[in-house]
Amino acid sequence: MTPAVLIEKLQKRYGTVEAVKDVSFQIEPGEIFGLLGPNGAGKTTTLRCLCTLTEPDSGRIEVSGISVTEQPRLARQRLGYVAQEIALDKVLTGRELLQLQAALYHLPRAVISDRIESVLSLLGLQDYADKKTGTYSGGLKKRLDLAAGLLHQPDVLVLDEPTVGLDIESRLAVWDFLRRLREQGTTVLLTSHYLEEVDVLADRVAIIDQGVVIACGKPSELKDRVGGDRITLRIREFAPLEEAEKAKSLLQTIPTVQEVIINSSQGNSLNLVVSPQSDALLTVQKVLQEAGLPTFGIAQSRPSLDDVYLAATGRTLLDAEIAAAGTRDEKAERKKSMR
């Protein structure tokens, strides 16, 4: 079967910045595929290359077997792209925006109004269709943007950070909506830097870091592959580093503890990898108690997608976010996204 999306050895550089170094993945029809990574990892650039907004330096990109670089118009017809920033014309009503969208995708006039009604009802927008989009709330805007992306019934719906900036209720509504889309057979590619979002939604996920895919597979498989259980330990709410170091050296002597990492971005808390189904939690508490160290909080869990990321990159997603926040040039990025 032809994959819905095929990306092979994608590379894209902006000046001296290698935004995408080596990205390859394949999406089967009907899947929800998640692209997970910190801000600045190359997710948006990958999507922009896929949606013909940016010319890749090298690599192969196909949508339903159509090369996006060789037959961009055909490929565009098969793709629905919902960008991270919601760009609506605030003077138009929702219905007028969809009418514009219908003309841009050359839908036959006979089907346009039926098609608009069906996406409006699909996203629960009937009551707002004839109001100006400038009066919409953030959640409504996103729903209209999704409706616009779906209007021409694309093979693949491409969503860049679909729930960033949304309230919890709208976010859950988007999740629910994407699941219903999958039931109807639409392929969905979404990027996210929310672990939870990818974990609950995606059938398969590619984790991307600094322009490279570092892991790809079903979320459950990826987590199993990392192995071990996780213990998060906070000695104090904000522990001094020496105390954390002291606890670390003590805990490393426990046989069921495989690894200890001090997480400086979380008040010097300790992240432990321990043998699964062991009594490590009790042992850790006992060792701390004997050494006279306090315990502010301690929790054991199965590995998460964050642990998959941590295992591959040596830092947590949050750390990567924080590190990236200081080094990113927002203005330059905005400029490169402008055509």
């Binding site: 013909t52 014309d89 969208q101 050359h106 402008m338 055509r339």
Partner: peptide
């Protein structure tokens, strides 16, 4: 339209 990203909406469409 360029600055607010509306142009991207037009550019991803299969315009003739």
């Amino acid at each position: 339209d360029r600055e607010f990203g509306f142009l991207n909406r037009l550019l991803v469409a299969p315009l003739s």
